[in-house]
Simulated assay, not measured.
Amino acid sequence: MTYITNNNFEVETHPWQPFIPKKADKLLLGTFPTHPRNRKTYEFFYPNPNNDFWKIIFEIAGLNIENSQKKDPVRLRKKVLTQLGLGIADICHMIYRQKTSSNDNALFPIEFTDIFLLLENHPIITTIVVTSSSKNSSTLAWLHQYCSLNGNPFIIPTGKLPKTATLHFNNKIINIEIIPSTSRQSRIKGDERLEMYKNALLKSN
């Protein structure tokens, strides 16, 4: 019998730069974009219509998601993020992707986004909002790896979501708000998840 021994993977580099408005005081952090086959509508963060990210963001901003696919959807999304004072980025800049999967468990970080440099360049950011935290393949786990690589780890909290952690950087405290993924595979959905996003994104720094 012949067995499979080749672990097929692709190397991918993040297709977009982080978007951080001038007055953003929070940085919303994900893992890495979905596989290109799922980027069906626009070239910007969370382009998969089966992910609820923009539905949640638009609802928090008091806008109708149904209008978001019309003229210049990327510009509209940047406008909404600016209105909410939110920057957006992903923790991974370069990854291995196994078998074209968009599941975080099929991704392996090669190079992290330089989060500390983003914080240096945007000093009014005092909160990082982390959008997944399950197991070792998540925004939280990879953010912790990046911070540890730079000799500045933080304590990962235990317990149920939402959770908070504290990062000390450049003589100030960065709050880390940990909330569930907007993937439809997430265990936490609906109003419960929406309320967690509202609390994290609208909280005063």
Rank of each mutant, 00 (worst) to 15 (best):
Glu66Trp: 11
Lys26Val: 01
Asn121His: 05
Thr82Gly: 09
Lys26Glu: 01
Glu192Asn: 07
Ile155Cys: 14
Leu63Arg: 14
Thr100Cys: 02
Pro109Phe: 00
Thr164Lys: 15
Gly151Cys: 14
Gly190Glu: 06
Arg37Asp: 14
Asn152Phe: 12
Asn199Val: 05
Asp25Thr: 10
Leu202Gln: 09
Asp114Ile: 00
Glu111Gln: 12
Met196Phe: 13
Gly85Phe: 00
Phe108Lys: 03
Ala106Ser: 05
His14Phe: 11
Asp52Val: 04
Gln185Ile: 09
Leu143Val: 12
Ile156Leu: 13
Thr31Arg: 06
Pro21Ala: 09
Gly62Glu: 03
Gly190Ser: 05
Lys70Gly: 06
Arg184Ser: 11
Pro21Asn: 08
Ile4Ala: 14
Asn7Ile: 13
Leu84Val: 04
Lys79Arg: 10
Trp54Leu: 08
Lys203Val: 02
Glu10Thr: 05
Gln185Cys: 02
Leu140Pro: 04
Phe169Glu: 07
Ile56Gly: 02
Lys172Asp: 13
Ile188Ser: 05
His122Ser: 06
Gln98Glu: 03
Lys26Trp: 03
Pro109Met: 00
Phe169Arg: 07
Leu86His: 01
Ser102Val: 00
Leu117Thr: 10
Glu43Ser: 13
Arg97Met: 01
Pro21Cys: 06
Thr127Ser: 07
Gln83Leu: 11
Ile176Phe: 04
Arg97Pro: 03
Ile173Ser: 14
Asn175Ile: 06
Thr41Lys: 13
Trp142Cys: 08
Met196Gly: 02
Asp72Cys: 02
Ile88Val: 12
Pro162Leu: 07
Thr13Met: 07
Trp54Gly: 04
Leu63Tyr: 07
Asn7Cys: 09
Thr164Tyr: 14
Lys78Pro: 04
Ser132His: 06
Gln69Pro: 00
Asn50Tyr: 08
Lys189Leu: 12
Met94Val: 09
Glu66Lys: 14
Asp191Val: 11
Gln69Trp: 08
Leu84Thr: 03
Asn38Ser: 12
Val129Glu: 03
Val74His: 07
Pro15Lys: 06
Gly87Asn: 01
Gln17Pro: 07
Glu59Phe: 03
Gln69Asp: 13
Asn199Trp: 00
His168Glu: 15
Thr131Pro: 02
Ile128Ser: 02
Gln145Lys: 15
Leu149Tyr: 15
Glu66Gln: 14
Leu117Gly: 00
Ser134Asp: 12
Pro33Gly: 01
Lys23Glu: 15
Ile178Gly: 01
Gly159Leu: 12
Leu202Asn: 07
Lys160Ile: 10
Ala165Met: 10
Asp25Tyr: 07
Thr139Val: 06
Ile88Thr: 04
Ile88Leu: 11
Pro33Tyr: 09
Asn67Ile: 03
Lys198Trp: 08
Ile124Leu: 05
Pro157Arg: 06
Ile95Pro: 06
Leu63Lys: 15
Pro21Lys: 07
Tyr46Asp: 09
Lys79Gly: 04
Asn50Met: 05
Lys23Ile: 08
His14Asp: 09
Thr166His: 14
Pro123Cys: 02
Ile88Phe: 04
Lys40His: 05
